[in-house]
Design a protein around this nucleic acid. Structure first.
Lengths: 149, 149
DNA sequence: TTCGGTGCAAAGAGTTTGCATACCG
DNA sequence: CGGTATGCAAACTCTTTGCACCGAA
C-alpha cells in the first residue's frame, strides 16, 4: 500500500489486460497531484499544458474507467448541479471520508467521521438493509469566511 | 401547519406577489401526491395526463421557483448522473430527513437521523464553521432485495 | 388592463459515442 | 502485428432562455 494511482492502475492493467498510455499516465498524475476535486474540464485544461493534443473525451473515458476500478469517485455538490467532480481514492482500502462545502468561498474540505461508520452499521441492523457506501456532504460557511463578516 | 403545498405556495404568493395558475396548481398537487422523488420529466409526464398543453419548461421554471421558496429540495443520486430529482418539503419547518437508495431496485427510502443533527453541531464546534444543511445518502441493498438472493 | 406566467423553439452545458487512426505490448 | 485506446466530430441528455402571447388579479 501507499502506492500511487499510476502504480495501482498498472497492477490492475497487468491483471485485467489493457495498456498504459501516455494520456493515462498524465491523467493519473494530475488526479494525484491536483488539490480539491477537479472537474473533467479542469483536469483536461491542466493536462493540456503537458500534452496539447489530448482530447476531452479521452479524459472522460479514463475517468469512467477509473470509477469502474474504484480508483476515483464521482461527486456532485449542490451548486454545480451540471458538473461532476472527481475524487481520487489515494491509497485505498477505503479511508472513507466526507465533505464540507463552504457556500461562500466554494472550497471543499474533507473530513473523516467514525460516527458515520457507526451509523451505517446501526442503520443496517435496524432496517435489514446492506449499506455499501455513504455520501455525507455538509454545506455552510467555513471558519475563515465566517470571520470576514 | 400541516398545510398542503398549494396552501403554502398561495400564502407566499399573497405575501410576495405572483399568481396561482392552473399549471402551478397541477405541479404542486403532483409534487404532493407522487411517491418517491420524481424527475422533472416524470412530473411533466404525470401532469400531461391532466393538461396536455403543459410544457416541460414550465415544469422546470416552477421547480426552480419552489426551490427558491424552500418548498422543494433538489437531489442528485449517484446513478442517474444527469437527472435531478425533486423532494417536496411537505409541511415544514424542516423535518430534516436523509436518503437510502437501493442499488438493486433503485427505490429511495427516507429516514430521519437525530445523530446527524448532533454531528452537525459537533462539527461546527470543532471546526468553527457554520453548518447550514447536510445531505446524507446511503447506498446499498434494501431488506427486500436482499432476501430475494 | 396589467404584467407575471406560459408555450414554443432554439440555445447551452456537460457528457457520450462511432469511426478511422495511432501506438502499446 | 493485433487489438486497445485515442482524436475528432457529431450526437445526446438535461436544463435554460428569449420572445410573443395569454390570462389571473
Amino acid at each position: 500500500m501507499n502506492s500511487t494511482l499510476i502504480e495501482q492502475a498498472e497492477s490492475i492493467l497487468k491483471l485485467q489486460g489493457g495498456r498504459m498510455t501516455s494520456q493515462r499516465k498524465l491523467i493519473l498524475e494530475l488526479l494525484q497531484s491536483m488539490p480539491g476535486h477537479p472537474t473533467a474540464e479542469e483536469i483536461y485544461l491542466a493536462a493540456s499544458q503537458y500534452d496539447e493534443s489530448l482530447n476531452l473525451s479521452t479524459v472522460y473515458r479514463n475517468l469512467r474507467w477509473l470509477i469502474d476500478l474504484k480508483l476515483v469517485t464521482p461527486l456532485v455538490f449542490d451548486d454545480d448541479r451540471r458538473q461532476e467532480r472527481f475524487d481520487a481514492m489515494i491509497d485505498p482500502p477505503q479511508s472513507d471520508h466526507y465533505h464540507f462545502r463552504c457556500q461562500e468561498c466554494c472550497q471543499i474540505f474533507e473530513f473523516s467521521a467514525p460516527e458515520v461508520e457507526q451509523f451505517k452499521a446501526q442503520f443496517s441492523d435496524s432496517t435489514g438493509a446492506v449499506v455499501q457506501s455513504a455520501s455525507l456532504i455538509l454545506y455552510g460557511i467555513c471558519a475563515d469566511c465566517r470571520e470576514l463578516k
